[in-house]
Simulated assay, not measured.
Amino acid sequence: MTFKFKEPSLKTKETMADVALNGASKNYEESIVSKIKGHTGHENVRVTNSGNASIFIALSGVGENIIIPDQGAWNGFKQVANLLNKNITILKTEQGIIDSEDIEELENNSSLILTSFAGYSGEQNLKEISEACKEKSITIIEDASAGIGDRKKRLGNGEYSDIILTSTGSPKIINAGSGGIISTNNREIFENTKIQQKIVKPNEIILSGIDVELDNIEKKLENTINACSYLKNNLDNVIHQDKRGLNVIIKDQKPKDLSWNLKHELEINKSGFITKCPNYNRVKEKAVAIEIKNLDYCCLTKEKLDLIIEKVEKFKNQ
């Protein structure tokens, strides 16, 4: 085995096992709320049993008009919006990146749901997007599953996003194997979704895991971003080459062949390391995504990254 799929930390596993056997030793939910407030700056926080549950709460609590990027987001956005019978507008992007000028054409009092990183690969300019949305009274819902804990405070920041949600399932930055979080300064979101919140409430075992995983997320996120930057600086034909991200998407005319070769050369103990495009959740063009975000942090070494570069150079455009 060359690479290892990201798992909850040993401390997280031990804490969850202890809670399963002996019950909770503290109020884990209260601790999570306090930590998330410190990251997002939002006053109101709820913990859920999954990222999709957090999306469900967010979209249940806003108006009928939902704006979704045409690529580079999460297909669950559209699925949940359809389930709730929302009116969906598809926003054209540049390989998932939103141009704030395009927001001027959107309907007032809508809600825009997006991910911190387009396709996990290109950082959205949340500051510019936020300024444009405020002019149109558009609510920003940021899925910060990949952006929570940003030391630069450009992502997962309540100054820019009205609602921030995360998945805490595997292999996210907060990796408890399950669960989700949602935060906002708009208390009405939670006042209007009390029934939904009861349906998606997590158990104490998951709460304990999330609480432990919230420690050191800044370092975990930064290490992953730095690893991707190293790859982007040493590979050609990379989409969003100059942007921060958690994966590396390489344009290739034969993505099926490249992904097949890389999967066989870059061995990992689980699937989910190589993604073939076109793929709505990444980009809608021929490419292959190397999901650095899915790797255990022990694999983010120069030796391992150089191996990825070597194999990509060997097989690209064959």
Rank of each mutant, 00 (worst) to 15 (best):
F3L: 08
K6G: 11
P8M: 09
T12Q: 15
A17R: 12
A17Y: 10
K37I: 04
N44T: 10
V47N: 00
T48W: 05
G61M: 05
G72A: 07
A73L: 07
K78Y: 11
T89C: 12
K92T: 13
G96A: 08
D102I: 02
N108L: 11
S110F: 04
T115P: 00
F117Q: 03
F117L: 10
A118F: 06
L126A: 07
I129W: 06
A132H: 02
K134P: 09
I141C: 05
E142V: 06
G147N: 02
K152W: 08
R154K: 14
S161D: 04
I163W: 03
T166H: 02
S167T: 06
I174W: 02
G177R: 05
I181A: 09
I182N: 03
N186H: 12
I189W: 05
I189L: 14
I195G: 14
Q196H: 15
Q197Y: 14
K201A: 14
N203I: 01
D215S: 13
D215P: 00
K220V: 07
E222D: 10
V238E: 03
I250W: 00
Q253M: 15
K254C: 06
P255E: 06
P278H: 11
N294R: 12
C299E: 08
E303C: 11
I309H: 00
K311T: 01
